[in-house]
């Protein structure tokens, strides 16, 4: 089967890859672009470990084809920190022990950042529903929720 040539932007950098028409954006980000921070937990859009932004919109990269990324702006966990300056969400996740094994963490951070861009002051309930598409099996979510709320408060203060 002939491959499709895709030109896209990942974390601000232009990248090109050739992909099979059946490959997902998740496959392409991991295997063709080398963004290994994007994780596969289910491949069916249920766990959110592969969360990325596409033109600013939060998506499960396992539910989008790699070929569909042509001309888009993709954001992954690798682009979240500003150089050596961690995003407040990343900092708060470490401080609050909001990760145990850490496999869901990249997806949850990307999802939480997308929420705070839309809604800088979410209620706990709003946050819990927004993150309902991101499974964490280790933490019971308690410390994740606290970390995001704390980061949101800091970000509001800083802005």
């Amino acid at each position: 089967m002939s491959k499709i040539h895709v030109t896209t932007t990942v974390n601000g950098d232009e990248v090109e890859y050739l992909c099979d028409p059946r490959e997902t954006l998740l496959d392409c980000l991991r295997d063709r672009v080398g963004m290994m921070g994007v994780k596969e937990g289910c491949g069916t859009g249920d766990c959110g470990a592969c969360s990325v932004t596409v033109d600013g919109r939060l998506v499960c990269s396992c539910l989008m084809l790699g070929a569909e990324a042509e001309g888009k702006e993709i954001g992954t966990i690798e682009g979240m920190a500003d150089g050596d300056q961690l995003h407040p969400l990343q900092q708060k996740f470490i401080e609050h022990a909001a990760l145990q094994c850490g496999i869901c963490t990249p997806g949850i951070l990307v999802a939480a950042e997308a929420l705070l861009k839309k809604n800088p002051d979410p209620t706990e309930t709003e946050l819990r529903y927004w993150l309902a598409g991101n499974l964490c099996r280790c933490t019971g979510y308690d410390k994740i929720i606290r970390a995001v709320m704390d980061a949101a408060a800091d970000m509001r203060e800083a802005s």
Partner: peptide
């Protein structure tokens, strides 16, 4: 055999623990 049907708790199911 998928997480949609094998449903583990999600954030909105729970209070703080």
């Amino acid at each position: 055999p998928i997480f949609l049907d094998y449903r583990v708790p999600v954030a909105s199911d729970l209070p703080m623990i």
